[in-house]
Design a protein around this nucleic acid. Structure first.
Lengths: 116, 116
DNA sequence: TAGATGTGCAACTCTGAAGTTGCATCAAAT
DNA sequence: ATTTGATGCAACTTCAGAGTTGCACATCTA
């Protein structure tokens, strides 16, 4: 299941999950179809079903997908929430960097003025 | 150097770079200090200088940091642009998923209505 | 009930990346 | 000129994870 965790650890999982190109391809496929099984997805990818199953496990642990059993098959769907949260985290970080750099620059210029 | 590439490949590099926890720690340190050398950073991390050098290489290739030589030392700085671009890419992707899911749901409901 | 289809579990291989150590090289300071 | 402190290069070890195969189990269908 896409578990409940602290925000930091959640980002951890998402970043690790998205680092793998095959996993991103998998997500694209899944997003395009809306719903699919590991078997179906494996048919459209250059890897075995088992490999897909493992990837889905990682993505599920990261909260990026979620699967539900229907009869003998397990259908997976994409979950935007975790992705969105990570995007916000990243944007905030970029903003933080920007502010820090601006401050450093300000301080440096002030120091230079003083030295003259 | 933080090379010129297509947007897709740039995201690739950033995601791969951010997947490593030690690299994120390194970035936090660097952002906090504004400017630092591999040697300085290694003193504040539980890894060797060489490990830090390699990490900085990865981060630099991803466009997340940039280094310049000053005398006998190489000072690195954080670069928010690549991070910001990746954040936007990710937010757009989350949005795309949302829209697709909404469409699928709409279609499913329409189909159900028709079946009655 | 049999056969077919889909999932789950386990053992195995293999490659890449993270980290280390050792040494060479280059610039600065005394 | 020597010594000190920083970077650069290279070989090596280690380990996680991406992928595979084989088989057992569950579920649908004819």
């Amino acid at each position: 299941m896409g578990e409940r965790r602290g925000a930091a650890e959640a980002v951890d999982g998402v970043l690790a999950a998205l680092a793998d190109p095959m996993r991103r391809r998998l997500l694209d496929l899944l997003a395009a179809q809306g719903e699919a099984t590991a078997t179906t997805l494996a048919e459209r990818l250059p890897v075995s079903r088992q490999a897909v199953v493992k990837h889905l496990g990682v993505l599920d642990a990261a909260g990026l997908v979620s699967g539900g059993r229907i009869g003998r098959e397990v259908r997976y769907t994409v979950r935007p929430a975790a992705l969105d949260a990570t995007a916000r985290w990243m944007a905030a970080l970029a903003d933080d960097w920007d502010r820090r750099l601006a401050t450093i620059k300000r301080v440096a210029e002030a120091a230079e003025r003083d030295s003259r």
